[in-house]
Design a protein around this nucleic acid. Structure first.
Length: 311
DNA sequence: ATGGACACCTGTGGGC
DNA sequence: TGCCCACAGGTGTCCA
């Protein structure tokens, strides 16, 4: 469920507590949450325990925590704890002794830089999300691997990205996002516009909610071929994406059920301003026509059949 | 390069 | 109340 604004809300919530914190111990309640860790649960625990966390970084929907190097690291390569929330993941910070959170899969016990004890709890209903330790490699453009405003320890990890996230394009809130390059590439794509903006190799961070919202905002049908967009229309769409993601980050992400929570276990409020997603049958806020939901690519697409015509 | 189907999972809500 | 089906914010892989 979480898209860029939800993941950014989690990132900014984790950073003050976890930057500079040291991992004391790990509790693995469900090994399936570690399925993307190549070495298995025992290796995960051994590699993470005793490490200092250097920062909290995000690109698109991927989060990672660069870890302090130590003797015995394979090939002396820097590593990070990489997290993805999948459809239903949550990362909660709890005081020791806090009541248990349902569907908790992994708990990392840590001591913050000021000595405070804390618990980082990875909660995930559907287990499409994961935690894994991965090597960090240099970014191809030499710029920082992702977004990590604020506190940090050192900068040896700055221009690196986890190997498992290296194929993910920069997101539109990344200072190193190249708008001109994205727009040019978008207009060569021989595919529908929604498919294109959901392609994390082209632009990252956009998921089903914000895709539908951005297309509604710029009056585009989800199946409109990307290559038919004028330069101006493509730019209008990118502006809508940026504006909507920014607005959603400001209110702490979107949530309409128990599945998305910030690190304190609280929900966001963006649902009040959704114009298309989840509004099947209700009147379009622009023209009054009922919003339609089509089955599309094994999921749903919400749009106004009058404002967003296929051309 | 593109797209479709499917796999990975659990939980909830609606209809009957 | 119980059962079955549809549906849910994502990603990766295999196969035409």
């Amino acid at each position: 469920m979480p898209e860029l604004p939800e993941v950014e809300t989690v990132r900014s919530g984790l950073a003050p507590s976890l930057t500079g914190a040291v991992v004391d111990s790990i509790e693995i309640l469900d090994v399936r949450s570690l399925k993307r860790h190549a070495g298995g649960p025992a290796d995960f625990e051994a590699t993470l325990t005793g490490r200092r966390i250097l920062g909290v970084v995000r690109r698109g929907k991927f989060l990672w925590l660069p870890l302090e190097a130590r003797d015995g690291d394979p090939e002396g390569k820097p590593i990070a704890l990489v997290g993805h929330l999948g459809m239903s993941g949550q990362m909660l910070l709890r005081n020791p002794g806090h009541s248990e959170d349902k569907l908790t899969r992994v708990i990392v016990h840590a001591t913050e830089a000021d000595g405070t004890k804390t618990e980082f709890r990875f909660v995930d209903q559907r287990i499409f999300g994961s935690l894994a330790i991965d090597v960090l490699i240099p970014t191809t453009d030499g710029a920082p691997g992702g977004f990590s405003a604020g506190v940090a320890v050192g900068e040896s990890w700055e221009n690196l990205i986890p190997h498992s996230a290296a194929h993910i394009a920069r997101d539109p809130l990344d200072p190193s996002f190249d708008s001109a390059k994205f727009l040019a590439k978008l207009r060569t794509k021989n595919t529908g516009i929604k498919r294109a903006i959901l392609d994390q190799n082209l632009i990252s961070g956009v998921g089903n909610i914000y895709a539908d919202e951005s297309l509604w905002q710029s009056k585009l049908h989800y199946d409109q071929q990307a290559k038919t967009l004028s330069a101006a229309k493509a730019k209008e769409l990118l502006t809508a994406i940026g504006d909507i993601l920014t607005a959603a980050v400001k209110v702490g992400g979107t949530s309409f059920d128990e599945q998305y929570k910030n690190v304190n276990g609280e929900s966001g409020y963006f649902e009040i301003s959704l114009n298309a997603y989840g509004r099947t049958g209700t009147e379009c806020n622009r023209c009054g026509t009922p919003i339609q939901r089509d089955s599309w690519a094994n999921r749903g697409s919400h749009f106004c059949p009058r404002c967003q015509r296929l051309r």
